[in-house]
């Protein structure tokens, strides 16, 4: 579940919380907080975690709101979930993008929800009173176990359920936490009766080293994120997950109820409905790929193309 908040972020978040706490005490009762003026103006503040995709999503929400003549500003890089959820509850920001499965596990680590619907049904019961999860986008960014397509075809593999006979014969590379998390090696054993011949921990969060290890054939299976632009290549095949080992991670706008008008909430749900995993891959490619477009630029270009000015 720490997929979206790699390690450095947790430390930064801790620092952020600490300094935020200090600033809050210092600011007193005038309604201003560490992250700006709370609820005083009609401008919606949209926060984000400090990794590129979250910032991109915040910019998409902001661009969509502006497209409908609502004022919106982004506050990128607020830190990990601990930090931005706290800010959202205080009303320092009105909206943050989040991922359904990880949000649920953060609020209720014992949750038994498995499907996307179950996750969305479980959320209202565990969210703090003043927060609401709006309708999720079809786009998902979740752990995906990936093989080289040629190798998978040669072995006749399409799904994790096909792996059992090959238990002990295929190697797997993933972030170190995969060895111990419930969706990781223990889950593969429990749900699919598969144990890799060797587990290679690579600490770049499904980044270039992990991808290179798969491409060069040094490992058979790797754990990547489903919005990784590399997955658009026919070179790779995502193994299906019929046993719901990996929790759905739909992207949703998480809002502070009193700060977001019905009109704004509607805009956020409309733009969410247009956001597919494929579209998000393309946007991620612009931001982290060779082009290095700013998240704001990529977001406003995309919103301008797909989102009509009038509903």
């Amino acid at each position: 579940m720490s997929r979206f908040q790699p390690n450095r972020r947790q430390i930064l978040a801790g620092l952020g919380l600490a300094t935020g706490g200090l600033t809050l005490t210092a600011c007193g009762l005038d309604g201003s907080t560490a992250f700006g003026q709370a609820g005083a103006s009609s401008t919606l503040l949209i926060g984000s975690a400090d990794f590129p995709e979250s910032q991109l999503l915040a910019e998409i929400y902001a661009a969509a709101l502006r497209q409908r003549d609502l004022e919106a500003q982004t506050l990128p890089g607020m830190g990990a979930r601990e930090a931005y959820l706290g800010a959202l509850q205080e009303g320092a920001v009105a909206v943050v993008p989040d991922y359904s499965g990880n949000l649920l596990l953060y609020l209720d680590s014992a949750s038994r929800a498995q499907t996307a619907q179950e996750v969305m049904q479980a959320l209202p019961g565990v969210l703090p009173q003043n927060l609401e999860a709006l309708a999720p986008a079809p786009a998902e960014n979740k752990d995906s176990l990936v093989m080289r397509a040629d190798r998978a075809r040669a072995l006749g593999l399409e799904s994790l359920a096909d792996l059992a006979p090959l238990s002990g014969h295929l190697s797997l590379a993933a972030a170190p936490e995969f060895a111990e998390r419930s969706y990781g090696l223990p889950g593969l054993k429990r749900v699919y009766d598969f144990e890799p011949s060797s587990f290679e921990p690579i600490n770049d969060g499904g980044g270039p080293l992990t991808l290179a290890a798969l491409r060069e054939g040094q490992v058979d299976i790797v754990d990547l994120y489903s919005t990784d632009p590399a997955l658009r290549s026919p070179e790779f095949l995502i193994l299906q997950d019929p046993g719901h080992l990996i929790l759905p991670q739909q992207i949703l706008p998480l809002v502070h109820k009193r700060l977001v008008s019905l009109e704004a909430a509607q805009v956020l749900e409309e733009i969410s409905a247009l956001l597919t995993t494929e579209a998000l891959m393309g946007l991620n490619e612009r931001v982290v790929g060779a082009e290095k477009a700013s998240p704001a630029q990529a977001a406003s270009d995309w919103v301008g193309q797909v989102f009509p000015r009038d509903s």
């Binding site: 720490s2 390690n7 947790q10 590379a173 972030a175 170190p176 936490e177 060895a179 111990e180 998390r181 290679e200 921990p201 690579i202 600490n203 770049d204 080293l209």
Partner: peptide, 17 residues
């Protein structure tokens, strides 16, 4: 940080978990 051992395993894995 890559797939090797040594005492760093405890540091990197501990941070990840």
């Amino acid at each position: 940080y890559i797939n090797l051992g040594g005492l760093g395993r405890y540091l990197i894995d501990g941070l990840a978990l």
